[in-house]
Design a protein around this nucleic acid. Structure first.
Length: 251
DNA sequence: ATGGCTACGATCCGTAGA
């Protein structure tokens, strides 16, 4: 089973790229973030034509998440109470799949930063309940946290900034402490592996990025995980998302 | 190198992303 996550930064703009990528990568499940579409405007027909069922929770302009699956989807939930469309969960072939778009946080100390930390605390509590019910659990998404300095192209320049600040990293570690593994770090990886590159300043060409899109696996799924990779190819396309897809393969 | 980009919903600029 191939699980993937991709922050598409507007599903309306990126739909052709998404369909092309799915046809080539053939993931079983794809978690999407920043669809930026109200549910009425979700391209369900095109997704179905590609062979995928969809569960989605969107809003206009901001946020928006979806789970696409080649297999049946059940027990769809949008998680804990929240005013923004940042979480959707579904059960696929006995695996609980949770798709998250964690808040950006804007700047350390800002109101949005405090919201981000509160959101992580709620997520942790909610995931604890999910883990109690589902031993096969995967959390995929844009966490907006680079867990360690090796996930940052220039740790010195980023020191103390949003996405790498100690409280954000502690919040991310808090999720792992529930009994989840960062799938990417289960394997030897190339140095300077990132999942996001700023649109400005030719950041992708300089590989000036952050690894902020992650796949967390419960112990049972981690045991079955045979690979976790970041696919940089879609970032090379014309008019790309600023994020690359991340893929985990389960035996 | 934090800007200089991109998407959106609103106009010919503001908000937000990360």
């Amino acid at each position: 089973m191939k699980l993937a996550t991709w922050n598409v930064n507007s599903l309306k703009v990126r739909l052709p790229q998404l369909l092309g990528w799915m046809a080539q990568a053939r993931p079983d499940v794809v978690c999407l973030q920043e669809t930026k579409l109200e549910d009425a405007k979700f391209p369900a027909r095109e997704i179905e034509a590609a062979g995928y069922q969809a569960a989605f929770a969107g809003q206009k302009t901001y946020n928006g998440v979806a789970i696409l699956s080649r297999h049946g989807v059940s027990e769809v939930s949008t998680g804990f109470p929240q005013e923004q469309a940042r979480l959707i969960a579904a059960t696929v072939s006995g695996t609980r799949v949770v798709c998250v778009y964690c808040p950006n946080g804007q700047a350390v100390g800002s109101e949005k930063y405090e919201y981000k930390l509160r959101w992580f605390a709620e997520l942790r509590e909610w995931l604890q309940g999910e883990l109690a019910r589902h031993s096969r659990l995967a959390v995929l998404g844009d966490f907006n946290v680079a867990p360690e300095d090796r996930d940052v192209h220039d740790p010195k320049a980023w020191e103390g900034q949003v996405h790498v600040s100690p409280p954000e990293r502690a919040a991310f570690q808090g999720l792992l402490k529930l009994g989840l593994e960062d799938a990417f770090r289960l394997f030897a990886q190339p140095e300077n592996s990132y999942s996001w590159w700023d649109y400005r300043t030719m950041a992708f060409r300089r590989n000036a990025g952050l690894r902020i899109d992650e796949i967390l696996l419960s112990a049972e799924l981690a045991k079955r995980c045979t690979a976790c990779t970041i696919d940089r190819e879609p970032r090379r396309l014309e008019r790309p998302s600023d994020h690359a897809p991340v893929i985990a393969e389960l035996a």
